[in-house]
């Protein structure tokens, strides 16, 4: 494992911890899209089916279990916790995420490494992860103001994707057998979706001002 991959995993973990901290400390999930969180839970559940079939390393297994458990916990809190669910911006979270599910599934049926149950679901999880942030970005754009922890959450999530690209570039040169085109192309698309957010994030950071997205 190279340093980019490791830092990518760590920023992914940090983003989830920031989200859990926000929900736990403020008992609020305002600014957070339940649809994006549900899509992520589905991404992890469909991608990590290999927990039952392949053992890669203790690190790999533990991280997978942490991602599954934390995403399910976040969805549960947003749906069922008496205080947290009241703060959910349901009227702003209107992105039609079923289209993302359907499109990702159809694409996975067409483009996969092998036509097998686990392989198709793996491709589905890669395509779905690439677009799962969209309901979250739309919600932030609609609400305009982004609270500090929510802004940090999205920033670290984007940083994770960017670091994975560096990881692939590194692997491309170090490991000539590394060909994972589905993941690499989807990863590029996914990272590109953050470009706009990153732009406004750095402006607010440079001006030491609160993060605001244009309407």
């Amino acid at each position: 494992m190279n340093i980019f991959r490791f830092l990518g995993d760590m920023t992914h973990l940090i983003s989830i911890l920031i989200l859990l901290l926000k929900i736990y400390a403020t008992k609020s999930c305002s600014g957070i899209s339940l649809k994006t969180q549900e899509l992520y839970a589905l991404v992890f559940l469909t991608r990590y089916l290999d927990l039952f079939t392949d053992f890669i390393s203790v690190y790999n297994t533990v991280m997978k279990l942490v991602f599954i458990a934390s995403s399910l916990a976040i969805v549960w809190c947003m749906r069922n916790h008496p205080l947290v669910r009241r703060s959910y911006d349901k009227q702003l979270d209107t992105f039609r995420h079923y289209f993302l599910l359907l499109a990702s599934f159809l694409l996975a049926l067409l483009l996969h490494e092998k036509f097998a149950f686990q392989e198709v679901l793996w491709a589905f999880s890669i395509y779905l992860e690439a677009v799962a942030i969209l309901p979250q970005l739309v919600l932030l754009q609609r609400s305009g103001n982004v609270d500090n922890l929510t802004g940090q959450y999205v920033f670290f999530l984007g940083a994770y994707r960017a670091l994975y690209i560096f990881n692939w570039i590194y692997r491309y040169f170090i490991d000539p057998h590394f060909t994972r085109w589905i993941a690499c192309v989807s990863g590029l698309v996914q990272t590109a979706l953050y470009a706009d957010f990153f732009y406004y994030y750095f402006i607010s950071w440079k001006n030491n001002a609160k993060l605001q997205l244009p309407a």
Binding site: F67, E119, R180
Partner: peptide, 10 residues
């Protein structure tokens, strides 16, 4: 890494 081999990334 074979194309449909073990996927070591998360």
């Amino acid at each position: 890494t074979e194309p449909s081999g073990v996927k070591d990334e998360l």
